[in-house]
Nucleic acid binder design. Structure first.
Lengths: 150, 150
DNA sequence: CTAATATCAGGACAACTGATATAT
DNA sequence: CATATATCAGTTTTCCTGATATTA
């Protein structure tokens, strides 16, 4: 290990962790208060994004991807089904599972681009970050994914 | 596959927003389940970090920095006072305010480096990210700060 | 008197744990 | 019987809104 005098690596990491911790709290509160696209919560919007990019999935798969319990994800999915944005069909090969996918109307809404533009977070990314900065953020997101799955 | 000229910047921003949304959820749950240093919650650790780096502050100041209501911050501060990590003295110039600062024992604990190393997040940053990647993350954190305050 | 600070009380949201029914 | 999936019910955490006392 090297330099323990001026910039010990763990002090740097510790300060970074502190910044990140505060940042996550603020982002989360912002998302909760402003990120409602329809009558959807922030978690529910995440589910829609996952289904859009990764395709149909079961409740358990979605829960694993989001790092939460199947019961918690089940509540989110129920709300989305009630809103007519997601529908589930039984897996013909495994009667225990229900395969969830976006409904046609939801897909249409996404394709029209309305959903994206109504979203506070993507709007903020576009309006406050230059294309180059957006790329920097993209690489950092990949780093954080690795970190959170470690 | 790259429709660079069509290249809707908003599609890119939208995908980035989706990734970020999921990431924040996962990070938040990870922090809640694993980031207890003593018997402290993640928000409380954030408060300690702020007081350590920025110096003494009032409840209102801390609340603004964290983007939450003074009442919510008050609950966190009360817990920290009960744990003997933070103490408040009345502002001699303004009787309404109470100035909060870290206690000697808390400072000692931080200085000993134990608190930092027990923290899941800073440990993860150190062990899974190279120094260069940590710098990349640092610049991205600055971008996100700007974004969340917009 | 109006504004700012802190705090008490009650409520909402989104996750959690435990238990149960059903299918593999 | 043992495992996996989904779901029902109750609890906890964390922050919110509303109201009040005190001081500037």
């Amino acid at each position: 290990m090297r330099t323990q005098q001026n910039h010990p690596n763990d002090v740097r990491a510790s300060a970074l962790a502190g910044d990140l911790r505060i940042l996550i709290g603020k982002l989360r509160r912002r998302l909760r208060e402003r990120a409602h696209i329809g009558d959807l919560t922030w978690s529910q919007v995440s589910v829609l994004g996952h289904l859009e990019r990764e395709g149909p999935a079961t409740v358990t798969t979605l829960a694993q991807a989001a790092g939460m319990r199947p019961q918690s994800m089940g509540a989110n999915v129920s709300a989305l089904e009630a809103a007519g944005l997601v529908s589930g069909t039984p897996d013909p090969a495994d009667g225990r599972q229900i395969i969830l996918s976006l409904t046609a109307s939801c897909r249409k809404r996404i394709k029209a681009g309305r959903a994206a533009r109504e979203d506070w977070l993507s709007h903020a990314i576009q309006s406050t970050l230059s294309p180059g900065e957006q790329r920097e953020l993209g690489t950092a997101v990949e780093l954080l994914k690795r970190l959170v799955d470690s």
